[in-house]
Each structure stands twice: as structure tokens, then as C-alpha cells.
């Protein structure tokens, strides 16, 4: 009907684009299968924002604290975190091992008028790119070689960079909360998690230190009956970690 167009990659077949568009709709549906992630998002973003402001001495009232910075989101799914990072001003690259997630994420970003460099590759494949902010939410518990994975994250971090990870703790509570209850009730798709692979904060700290990083903060993510998911001192269920390049090694 009219000549104005969005940049549509010629390799994407319209039927396929429509298919991923529908999948995006489900991923992004606040009441759909990712409802839990949607509810978690503001909490996580609050943590990231505070870490960013502390690290770069930013003003918490601004809207684009990541202006001029390069951000990498590893394990981006449909882009629930990558899109906010882009809105906060970062030039965002986002990776996911599953090509269908990447297709879904691309479809959604177009609708949001956001430019994000989505790639269906692993972090190990990035050669000389460096990022000021690297985020990796709920991924490390799924990888087969956590030490190698953390080393790869550390390698792509710029010298003054900030790495933020989140992952479930390996405690009886997380087994009950995440696997028995959440997966059991279908709040999280069944089979998403393997409890034995969960990592304790001390173990993650060791991995980060061995990769030449220094942990600057560990904060729990707890469930409060009145307020839902909240940041907390209690790390028993799930936790977030901030790490920076160890200045002693530079």
C-alpha cells in the first residue's frame, strides 16, 4: 500500500518470518509461557542499573546510562534483556545458541524499532570484540563446561568492563522451588533445569577468580509472598553476581 519499509533481510522468507512472529508473540506475552521471566525482568534490570551506576558513577535518574557503551547479552532468548539494554543507550550484541530464538528476537526488535545485533552463535566464537557490559542470565547452569564458559565471558570483557551473571543456587530450596514447584506447575517448561548442574555462589566466585575477575557483589533473588520476586540477602533460591576485571592482574 505504501512504499515505506522496514529493513527486512532478503534471506528471510516471509512465511518463516510470520512463524517467528507468532512465536515472538508467545515469548513476549506477559501471561504466556515466559510469564516468570517477565516478572523477573524489572527486578534484574534494577540490579543491573544499580551496578552500572555504581561502576561508572552514573546518575540513577537518567534514561540512557549505557550511552556510548557496548553491551553483550549471552543467552538472550527472545531479547527480554537485550531490548532494555538497547533502550538504555547501549550498542547491543546478543547471542543465543538456538537459531529460532534469534529469529524470534529479531522479529520482535523490528516491532520495537530497536537495532540489536542478534547472532546465533556461542560466546566462544567472538574473536577480538570487547564489551563494556556483559550479561549472562540463567545460562551457566545449562553449559557443559562452566569454567571454559566463564573464561570466554572474561575474555570478551573490556578492561574497565562489568560482568553480571545470574543463576539458581544448588540448595534444597532451589530444588523444591524451581524444579518441583515451578516446573511441576508448568510455570517453567518441564525439563528446563538439571539441579545437579546448579552452581553455588562460592563455586562461581572461584570460577570467576580463576578467569582473572574479581567479584564485587553477590545478591540473592528471593520470593516474598507480598511483593513477589525481590532482591535480597538470601541467596538460597537464585542469585546475581557482579564481577570486574581484577585490577591486580592488569
Amino acid at each position: 500500500m505504501n512504499a515505506s519499509t522496514h529493513p527486512v533481510t532478503p534471506t528471510i522468507d516471509p512465511a518463516e518470518a510470520a512463524h517467528f512472529g507468532r512465536m515472538a508473540a508467545d515469548w513476549w506475552d506477559p501471561k504466556g509461557s515466559s510469564a516468570m521471566l517477565h516478572r523477573l525482568n524489572p527486578v534484574r534490570l534494577g540490579y543491573i542499573r544499580a551496578a552500572v551506576d555504581t561502576h561508572w558513577h552514573g546518575n540513577p535518574d537518567t534514561f540512557t546510562p549505557l550511552e556510548g557503551r557496548r553491551a553483550l547479552d549471552v543467552g538472550c532468548g527472545a531479547g527480554l534483556l537485550a531490548e532494555p539494554l538497547a533502550r538504555l543507550g547501549a550498542t547491543v550484541t546478543a547471542l543465543d545458541a538456538a537459531p529460532e530464538n534469534i529469529a524470534v528476537a529479531r522479529a520482535h526488535a523490528v516491532g520495537q524499532r530497536l537495532t540489536i545485533d542478534y547472532r546465533a552463535v556461542g560466546v566462544e566464537t567472538l574473536a577480538d570484540e570487547r564489551f563494556d557490559l556483559v550479561t549472562c542470565m540463567e545460562v551457566i547452569e545449562h553449559v557443559s563446561d562452566p569454567a571454559g564458559f566463564v573464561a570466554a565471558l572474561a575474555r570478551v570483557l573490556a578492561p574497565d568492563g562489568l560482568l553480571i551473571l545470574s543463576t539458581p543456587n544448588r540448595t534444597p530450596l532451589s530444588r523444591l522451588g524451581i524444579i518441583t514447584v515451578s516446573e511441576g506447575l508448568g510455570r517453567i517448561p518441564k525439563g528446563t533445569h538439571d539441579w545437579d548442574r546448579f552452581i553455588r555462589p562460592e563455586e562461581l566466585a572461584v570460577l570467576l577468580t580463576s578467569a582473572g575477575l574479581r567479584v564485587t557483589d553477590t545478591t540473592g533473588l528471593a520470593f516474598s509472598p507480598g511483593r513477589g520476586l525481590v532482591l535480597s540477602e538470601n541467596v538460597a533460591l537464585n542469585y546475581l553476581v557482579t564481577a570486574v576485571a581484577d585490577s591486580g592482574s592488569s
Partner: peptide
């Protein structure tokens, strides 16, 4: 507050 977190103003959580 949502905008300070990079969330879309129409975000369902907000």
C-alpha cells in the same frame, strides 16, 4: 521508573 530500567512504557509489569 520503568524507563530508567529500559522497559517499554507499555510493559505489562509496570
Amino acid at each position: 521508573e520503568a524507563k530508567r530500567l529500559g522497559l517499554d512504557p507499555g510493559d505489562a509489569q509496570g
